[in-house]
């Protein structure tokens, strides 16, 4: 990891221009924690790193949108998201989850953009943002586009981010009426990558579940939406029996994988328990106003 240069573009256009060469050795970064780990392990040897630090001032915004949704700039640190009153009000599940998501030093430097771009299924933020219906905002040589967070991940460390493209932020739809929760289950030390991470968001109308999104991270090869579990919820009463049906559907549906933190079979059983518990917690959390 030697003999590379670090450049500091002062505009998106300049950053995109630097990325346009299509060179595998060129990468953009801001917090740099994940990148440093890859470089130290010899997994990645850059020739040029594009530091987005100069763009931070205009890209670390956290603001409510006119329709009641939320817009978070790619350069917002996880700490700033955690502390943001706007987030606490319009998507409290994010602020609550932050404390368990990484240690304070990492949260101080890691950015929302990097957390989305990394593509490690053990990241906690993608399932939460996906369950909230979030979209990744991208800009590239061909202009701007969006991609739903839930379909942004195509494999282990693989995303729909194209070469030459950058994440500029994430947009959440209005959360009013939605109840959300994220539960991270670790099976070794308390502070660890999740063995299973479950994020849910549901809307209860007149005593029935009108809508639900259930995402699982960590236990599967990539972030996965559990649609049959969602179907098991729809129009049911928000009670233990309905949640148990959804949990069984989730266990049936998810393709879990073996890892140092547990066997695939065990993760399936954890998923069954944690889908139930996360749904119950979401119900308890109450709806966003």
């Amino acid at each position: 990891m030697r003999n590379f240069d670090i450049v500091h573009p002062s505009s998106w256009a300049e950053a995109l221009g630097l990325l346009s060469g299509g060179d595998e050795g060129t990468r953009a970064f801001s917090g740099g924690t994940a990148l440093m780990l890859m470089m130290k392990s010899g997994f990645y040897a850059p020739t040029r790193l594009i530091h987005l630090g100069a763009l931070e001032a205009r890209c670390s915004f956290i603001e409510a949108t006119a329709d009641g949704g939320l817009l978070i700039g790619a350069a917002a640190t996880l700490s700033s998201v955690e502390a943001s009153p706007v987030v606490q009000r319009s998507a409290p599940v994010i602020a609550q989850a932050m404390k368990k998501l990484a240690n304070v030093r990492v949260r101080n430097v890691a950015r929302v953009g990097g957390a989305l771009a990394h593509g490690d299924p053990h990241m906690d933020l993608p399932p939460i943002l996906a369950a909230l219906g979030g979209e990744v905002l991208l800009c590239g040589p061909d202009g701007e586009r969006t991609c739903p967070v839930e379909s942004f991940y195509t494999g282990y460390l693989e995303t729909r981010l194209s070469q030459g493209e950058l994440i500029t932020g994430v947009r959440l739809p209005p959360q009013a009426g939605w109840r959300s929760a994220y539960v991270k289950c670790t099976t070794r030390a308390a502070d660890d990558w999740p063995t299973v991470g479950v994020a849910v968001s549901l809307r209860v109308v007149s005593g029935a579940i009108a809508d639900a999104r259930i995402m699982v991270g960590a236990a599967t090869e990539r972030l996965t939406r559990l649609t049959s579990a969602e179907a098991a919820l729809r129009l049911g009463a928000p009670d233990a029996a309905t949640f148990a049906r959804a949990a069984d559907a989730a266990a049936q549906e998810a393709v879990t994988v073996d890892s140092a933190s547990g066997s695939a079979g065990y993760k399936t059983e954890l998923l069954r328990v944690y889908v139930r518990r996360t749904l119950a917690e979401a119900l308890l959390n109450g709806a966003v106003q």
Partner: peptide
């Protein structure tokens, strides 16, 4: 004024 991990911070930054 913000705590970081020195081992994950490139010095030039």
């Amino acid at each position: 004024g913000v705590a970081v991990s020195g081992c994950l911070t490139l010095a030039q930054l």
